[in-house]
Computed example of a mutant assay.
Amino acid sequence: MKAIICEAFGSPENLILGTLPDPKPGKSQVVIAVEVCGVSYPDLLILENKYQFKPELPYSPGGEVVGEIVELGENVDTLNVGDRVLALCRWGGLAEKVAVDSDRVFVLPHGISSEVAASSLYTYSTSFHALKDRAELKPGETVLVLGGAGGIGLAAIELAKIMGANVIAAASSDEKLALCKSKGADETINYESEDLKNRIKELTNGKGVDVIVDPVGGKYTEAALRGIAWKGRYLVVGFANGEIPKIPMNLPLLKGCAILGVFWGNFSEVEPEQNKSNMNQLYQWLIEGRITGHSAAVYELGEAKHALLSLEDRGNLTKGIVRVL
């Protein structure tokens, strides 16, 4: 089969288009003929050997695929050959076929396009798990979203609004903040030109925010935490900044707040029924138009390295998806 191949960790520039053997399903796996594959920041971190999981070389990047099941493992009885599915495979998606554990495969209903599913559902499922399961967000609370113009951030803005929250989006440029506004953010903060903690206090009349969604890490974490409300919840989603922050532990003590890890990948494996319920809710909101998905640039398989390189451009506001078949 055709595949994008990484032979050594490093830059996307080193990826090649080649051939790999067709995958065979394990006992609890399915093989999917890939139609489209979304690319996201974790794909870049894995490629650069900076992620918490490490594939064996050579491998194909790509963790979000939409396609058709063409083969079942012997223990799989909840899926069928011919099902059109979304699969969250961690890597292997930039290839004509991929084998995926069946508990990370979700049948797609009619009314959700392959492009929207591949470009959006990973970020929406992560953000929904963060707000619903970890923060237990309540209507009327205020949510601060760091990195508001990224995939996780835009999903968190839309979902928090649906869940009845007030939303403050923070990002590094006015163009990005305009995008956040278009997704429903009530207020915005440019954390490159404004004092983050002080603006949080100003926008909340000194109270602070109830929930913080942080997929960025780096230098803004402590400032945001200083702007959290009493009994607030700080959601650690990721470190797109590349820097894992060190938090003064007197802050959660003084704030009476909780710092909560958000690891959707492990949640989806450990609590598959809850995750399935979450996915069904997201499907419903997409079909109803209450959430809209992310805009995407479409690349062909031979152009996949450019989709990954685009992730390095922090000014890029469009997610990349790669058409395989």
Rank of each mutant, 00 (worst) to 15 (best):
G242H: 10
D174I: 15
V211G: 08
K255I: 04
Y191V: 07
E202L: 13
E192W: 01
N190M: 06
I244F: 02
E175T: 11
G227E: 02
K231T: 06
Q274D: 08
G206W: 03
I259M: 04
K246Y: 05
I212S: 08
F239P: 05
N190R: 03
Y283K: 09
N278W: 05
E288V: 09
V236T: 05
V209Y: 10
L177N: 02
T221L: 12
L282S: 09
N266T: 15
V262I: 10
V270R: 13
Y220H: 08
S268Y: 08
S182H: 06
I212G: 05
L225M: 13
K201Q: 10
V262S: 02
I212K: 06
K207R: 14
W285G: 14
G242L: 12
D210W: 04
E194Q: 11
K255F: 11
P252M: 02
F263M: 08
I244R: 04
R233W: 02
L225V: 06
R226V: 08
L251M: 09
G289M: 11
P248C: 03
V237R: 02
L282A: 07
K246E: 08
G184K: 05
K176I: 11
S193G: 03
N278L: 11
D210G: 04
N280E: 11
E288Y: 09
G217M: 13
P245D: 01
G256D: 00
F263L: 10
E192P: 01
T204E: 09
K183P: 01
C180F: 07
P272G: 09
Y191I: 06
I247A: 00
V216F: 13
A185I: 12
F267H: 13
V262L: 04
E243S: 11
R233G: 01
E187I: 06
V262C: 04
W230F: 13
L282K: 03
L282D: 06
L177E: 03
L254W: 02
A240E: 04
D214C: 05
E273D: 14
E187D: 07
E222F: 03
E273W: 15
P252Y: 00
G289Y: 14
K201C: 06
V270H: 06
L225R: 01
G218V: 11
T221G: 07
E175M: 04
F263V: 15
A240R: 00
C257V: 07
R290H: 09
K276M: 12
V216C: 12
K231G: 00
K183V: 11
I212A: 07
E243D: 14
W264E: 08
D174K: 12
N198Q: 05
E273Q: 09
A178R: 06
A258V: 05
S277W: 09
L253F: 12
T221R: 05
Y283A: 12
L286A: 08
K276W: 10
A240I: 15
P245E: 01
N280A: 14
